[in-house]
Simulated assay, not measured.
Amino acid sequence: MSGTELAREAWSHKIKRRVRNAMGPWGVFIEGFVRNPVMVGSIVPSSRFTINRMLAPVDWGNCKLFVEYGPGVGTFCRPVLDRLARDGMLLVIDTNPLFIDYLRRTITDSRFRAVLGSAADVEDIVRQHGFEKADYVLSGLPFSTLPDGVGPAIAAATWRVIRQNGAFLVYQFTPRARDFMARHFRRIDNALEPLNVPPCFMYWGWKDAADGQVAND
């Protein structure tokens, strides 16, 4: 590549960076979606109505580790940190380095950790941060469009990592996510939030204390 071509490429990156910075989190979110739409559920972040309803069933007084898959630009991160105990931890996992870099730069709360990796490796990631189990796991990953085998692997690993009486919180734009959850979670509550773009299906899979190890694990 010639010096002129290198200069043009550097200028192009500089312009893109300026545009993204001017747009704030929206710019980062859109760029992340364009780069990898299969791993981002929607081009529009979740509404406050979806956030509040998804987090409402959480027992925050007994939550020391809250895990989120696919945090994007932190739409749920700040509401979770607002509710989380002072000695708790929010651990987010994403395969998109653009999002992880943005979150590390913009969220300075000492209770926050952002990990570049796969949700299928959640058990190892949780142990690496000093925990054996998570109290709650939140996911907005588009299960129906993930590569073959990835959705079931994530659902199984999530079941194993959640403590008894904890829950798997899932929001999706199709009802198929429930099929992945139902292989492991016997009790699943559900709702539909119309005040979201698009309307959002919500599921809470509970790991009841009486549950044994579910088949197809």
Results as ranks from 00 to 15, higher is better:
Ser2Leu: 11
Glu5Ile: 15
Glu5Gly: 14
Ala7Tyr: 13
Ala10Asp: 11
Ala10Asn: 11
Ser12Lys: 10
Ser12Arg: 07
Lys14Ser: 15
Lys14Ala: 13
Ile15Ser: 08
Lys16His: 05
Arg18Phe: 11
Val19Asn: 07
Asn21Glu: 10
Gly24Asp: 13
Gly27Glu: 07
Phe29Ile: 01
Gly32Ile: 10
Arg35Gly: 00
Asn36Ala: 12
Gly41Tyr: 05
Ser42Met: 12
Ser42Val: 06
Val44Ser: 04
Ser46Pro: 09
Arg48Ile: 04
Arg48Met: 01
Phe49Met: 02
Thr50His: 02
Thr50Arg: 03
Thr50Val: 06
Thr50Gly: 06
Asn52Cys: 01
Arg53Met: 09
Met54Phe: 08
Pro57Gly: 07
Val58Ser: 01
Asp59Ser: 10
Asn62Trp: 01
Tyr69Cys: 13
Tyr69Gln: 14
Gly72Gln: 15
Val73Tyr: 09
Arg78Ile: 05
Arg78Gly: 00
Pro79Trp: 01
Val80Leu: 04
Leu81Lys: 02
Leu84His: 05
Arg86Ile: 10
Met89Glu: 09
Leu98Phe: 04
Ile100Val: 13
Tyr102Val: 12
Arg104Gly: 15
Arg105Ser: 12
Thr106Cys: 03
Asp109Leu: 04
Ser110Gln: 04
Arg111Leu: 04
Phe112Tyr: 08
Asp121Val: 05
Asp124Leu: 02
Asp124Ser: 09
Gly130Trp: 07
Phe131Asp: 10
Phe131Val: 04
Glu132Tyr: 08
Ala134Val: 10
Ser139Arg: 08
Phe143Leu: 08
Phe143Trp: 11
Ser144Cys: 09
Val150His: 06
Ala153Cys: 11
Ala153Tyr: 09
Ala156Leu: 02
Ala157Arg: 02
Ala157Phe: 05
Thr158Phe: 03
Trp159Leu: 09
Ala167Gln: 07
Ala167Arg: 06
Phe168Ala: 00
Leu169Phe: 12
Gln172Lys: 04
Arg176Asn: 06
Asp179Tyr: 14
Phe180Trp: 00
Arg186Met: 13
Asp189Phe: 09
Asn190Ala: 01
Leu192Cys: 08
Asn196Trp: 08
Val197Ala: 01
Val197Gln: 00
Pro198Ile: 02
Pro199Ala: 02
Phe201Cys: 13
Trp204Tyr: 07
Lys207Asn: 11
Asp208Ile: 11
Gly212Gln: 11
Gly212Ala: 10
Gln213Asp: 14
Ala215Pro: 07
Asn216Leu: 00
Asp217Glu: 05
